[in-house]
Simulated scan of single mutants.
Amino acid sequence: MSPQSIQGCDLLEGEWGKPGCIICWRYFHDGSPQIAKEIIEVIDNENYITNYKVIEGNLLELYKSFSSTVKVTPKENDDGSLVHWIFEYEKLNEDVPDPTGKLQMVIDVAKDIDALLLSQQP
């Protein structure tokens, strides 16, 4: 859906779509290939919330911890949804930048997914 950003996503452990599964993302960011191994900590289908925690990969070269929460809020009248990304992280030191580039990447991926879904509507 977003080949310029995401090169692959592999299930390493557990079952797709279930808490506790471990996923390895291969993506391109800031001009170089990156890897993030994440565990899905929470999947709340009723409230459309998923929480991921990075357990290995390039992000942990800059951050002591890094997790993200994705919350989808359906708009009224089935007119699409809003997607909220929340990053929680602890920097290794004060010189480490905030992950605004990663935030822009997930925004770009969300736009690519949106465009694909809109192109498939009857």
Rank of each mutant, 00 (worst) to 15 (best):
residue 87 F to G: 03
residue 79 D to M: 13
residue 57 G to F: 03
residue 109 V to A: 01
residue 37 K to F: 04
residue 114 D to F: 04
residue 24 C to R: 10
residue 51 N to D: 14
residue 71 K to Q: 10
residue 111 K to I: 08
residue 57 G to T: 14
residue 59 L to D: 04
residue 58 N to G: 15
residue 19 P to G: 08
residue 84 H to N: 09
residue 78 D to H: 12
residue 104 Q to K: 10
residue 71 K to S: 07
residue 19 P to R: 05
residue 56 E to I: 09
residue 78 D to A: 13
residue 80 G to F: 09
residue 122 P to F: 06
residue 46 E to N: 01
residue 29 H to M: 03
residue 116 L to F: 13
residue 11 L to M: 14
residue 70 V to L: 01
residue 49 I to G: 12
residue 91 K to D: 13
residue 95 D to H: 13
residue 11 L to N: 03
residue 32 S to D: 07
residue 78 D to V: 12
residue 103 L to P: 00
residue 119 S to H: 02
residue 88 E to S: 13
residue 43 I to D: 02
residue 81 S to W: 09
residue 116 L to A: 15
residue 5 S to W: 15
residue 30 D to G: 04
residue 38 E to C: 03
residue 29 H to A: 07
residue 37 K to E: 15
residue 79 D to F: 11
residue 37 K to G: 00
residue 69 T to N: 11
residue 7 Q to N: 02
residue 45 N to S: 14
residue 34 Q to K: 14
residue 56 E to A: 04
residue 85 W to D: 06
residue 58 N to T: 14
residue 77 N to C: 12
residue 68 S to V: 01
residue 40 I to M: 12
residue 78 D to P: 00
residue 92 L to Y: 07
residue 110 A to F: 03
residue 16 W to V: 03
residue 51 N to V: 14
residue 30 D to V: 13
residue 69 T to P: 02
residue 113 I to K: 04
residue 9 C to T: 14
residue 79 D to V: 12
residue 6 I to Q: 05
residue 33 P to M: 07
residue 76 E to H: 13
residue 92 L to Q: 15
residue 60 L to P: 09
residue 21 C to N: 09
residue 64 K to H: 15
residue 60 L to T: 14
residue 113 I to R: 06
residue 121 Q to P: 09
residue 96 V to M: 04
residue 110 A to C: 11
residue 108 D to L: 05
residue 37 K to M: 09
residue 13 E to W: 06
residue 86 I to S: 04
residue 33 P to E: 06
residue 64 K to L: 15
residue 22 I to V: 15
residue 33 P to H: 06
residue 49 I to T: 09
residue 74 P to N: 14
residue 29 H to T: 12
residue 70 V to T: 13
residue 80 G to V: 08
residue 51 N to F: 00
residue 57 G to C: 01
residue 74 P to Q: 12
residue 62 L to N: 15
residue 33 P to N: 09
residue 49 I to E: 01
residue 112 D to A: 15
residue 8 G to Y: 00
residue 58 N to R: 10
residue 101 G to S: 15
residue 104 Q to Y: 00
residue 43 I to R: 07
residue 112 D to S: 12
residue 89 Y to L: 09
residue 76 E to I: 01
residue 82 L to A: 11
residue 24 C to Y: 04
residue 44 D to A: 04
residue 1 M to P: 01
residue 34 Q to F: 08
residue 21 C to G: 00
residue 10 D to F: 08
residue 43 I to W: 01
residue 1 M to Y: 07
